[in-house]
Design a binder for these strands. Structure first.
Lengths: 312, 312
DNA sequence: GTGAAAGCGCTAACAC
DNA sequence: GTGTTAGCGCTTTCAC
């Protein structure tokens, strides 16, 4: 493995001059530069990126903690993050978590070990307070309302849009409405937002039995559909947490040959268009872009990105 | 910034002993271990990951070069790669390329600079010969048939399945068939596979005007639909390169109020199910898993993963 | 069991 | 313009 000293020795110059040539720094005479570049080429030399990072005390890496790689929420978010990271010459490292607290803790530790300049949590199992503690080791950005955690955050402003969606259902005359969510009320800000919007519009609590959680994939949607079709014929509309999930939900009703409830999707996916489902676009790619900007400290203010209710 | 020397000094032991404790190496007496761990805790010390990488000459990072982050081909592939990488304690760094040769070259250089232990090209603009040259700097895996490039490779075995799909169209009596692809015949092995399968089944060349390329997104699909609907009423079936794309294609015909051709999708996406489209599942997640295994040298043999024609 | 010291390969402050 | 040198923080061989 040839290194900068070899180049210095063979070119007859010092390592610092070689370094200058390599980094296009300062003043180096044209001849010196040429001489050095020639040796570099001859030895097929390339500077070591890790050594460089170490010396500079910076990695230009941001870690992105994400529960699943296949959910549209994360896909869109990652896309936005990548776009912004690319523009700023940063690299994106994907850190799968499945909302596992131990894993998340491990990732926090790697931040502490300076493996990344910053960490973006697209979602999290750990309490915000725990994340907040690790801020001293590097920037930590979350993709939800930070409340009083003091963490830099961007997120889709969902409640208003959920309200619009429920108002739409109310106007259509639906009174028994199912709600699907990814995680428990206690664990998830999104679930809380959905329920809050429901209660706001209907001025009544959402019956617990109509609030179904643990839904992440199309298949989960189908399972949820099975739950509702077998139990609640009175439910005539369902607020799902994804167009694909709505598709899965629908499967169960088709299989049972029961009339399909009115479904609202989310994420504005192709499947939603195919089924002509009303949907909600949370503009997660924009959230991703802002999250990255927060991560490298380009922006200081937290931003809520408004989401949008769409009739397909 | 506290470092291993601080711990050594304050604990009264040497750096090597501290290092041993940190890495659970060799023999360290229980008391020594305790004493050191106490200091570590007291100083809130964490070893620096970059320094460690440098010292070890290994990063446990694999770079994944991908043209787009939003195409299902790449999403699925990345998911497989991540699953396998996670299991092996490696990290996945996403490198967006847009098939830009200069960018790809830059990524090859970063491999040379030891920023990654290996590079996986999910697709590429550069010639395989160029990629092959960089093998001396680290492992390079491609996700297509390597032919005589000598590169480690996994890929979906597509031709047989494309043949099945075209045979299906032939049996249904279609004689004028459109074909959508992502990239030009010259640039893309996939496009070549599609065309080869067509010609195999129909024993005639695919008319160039029916071979439409540059299609990557749902919107591109719609544009393609516009192209066909305006020009080729005789085309009664189209082999698209994605279920979502088929959905876009369909839009153009709906807008023009013309009868829809028989569409075949790909990627086995929810939108395809919603439209009851026949589709092809290439099992890209499996391809991803194998690609990663090749990247870290767990497996030496190239593998073609069979794909599957599905009637939804 | 523990320690000294030589790397790993580069950057950058400072001197000339 | 160019060189010297002290880091950056850790691992690992070798000696005791």
């Amino acid at each position: 493995m040839t290194n900068i000293h070899d180049i210095a020795r063979l070119s007859g110059y010092s390592v610092s001059t070689v370094s200058r040539v390599l980094n296009h720094h300062n003043y180096v005479s044209a001849e010196t530069r040429q001489a050095i570049e020639q040796v570099v080429k001859k030895l097929d030399y390339a500077p070591n990126a890790v050594a460089r990072d170490l010396s500079r005390g910076k990695t230009f890496n941001v870690g992105v903690v994400l529960p699943h790689a296949d959910h549209p929420y994360f896909t869109q978010l990652v896309q936005g993050i990548m776009r912004a990271a690319f523009a700023a010459n940063y690299h994106v490292v994907l850190l799968p978590s499945k909302w596992d607290a131990q894993l998340e803790q491990k990732y926090l530790e790697t931040l502490r070990q300076h493996a990344y300049d910053a960490l973006i949590f697209t979602s999290h199992g750990l309490p915000l307070a725990t994340l907040a503690k690790y801020q001293r080791y590097g920037r930590i950005v979350i993709c939800e309302n930070p409340h009083d955690s003091g963490l830099p955050a961007t997120y889709a402003e969902r409640v208003a849009t959920y309200r619009t969606a429920f108002a739409h259902l109310k106007k259509l005359g639906h009174t028994h409405i199912g709600v699907l969510n990814s995680r428990d009320l206690a664990a998830s800000a999104t679930t809380q937002a959905t329920v809050a919007a429901y209660e706001d519009v209907f001025q009544a609590p959402l019956p617990a039995k109509y609030c179904y959680t643990g839904v992440n994939t199309l298949t989960d949607g189908q399972t949820a559909g099975g739950y509702f079709v077998a139990r609640f014929p009175e439910v005539t509309a369902v607020m799902t947490n994804g167009d694909d999930i709505a598709l899965g939900f629908r499967r169960a009703y088709l299989a049972a040959q029961r009339p399909l409830p009115y479904l609202i999707g989310q994420e504005h996916q192709p499947s939603g268009e195919a089924l002509k489902l009303p949907t909600i676009d949370h503009h997660f790619d924009l959230v991703g872009v802002r999250a990255f900007q927060l991560a490298i400290g380009e922006t200081a203010t937290n931003v809520a990105i408004p989401s949008e209710f769409l009739l397909n």
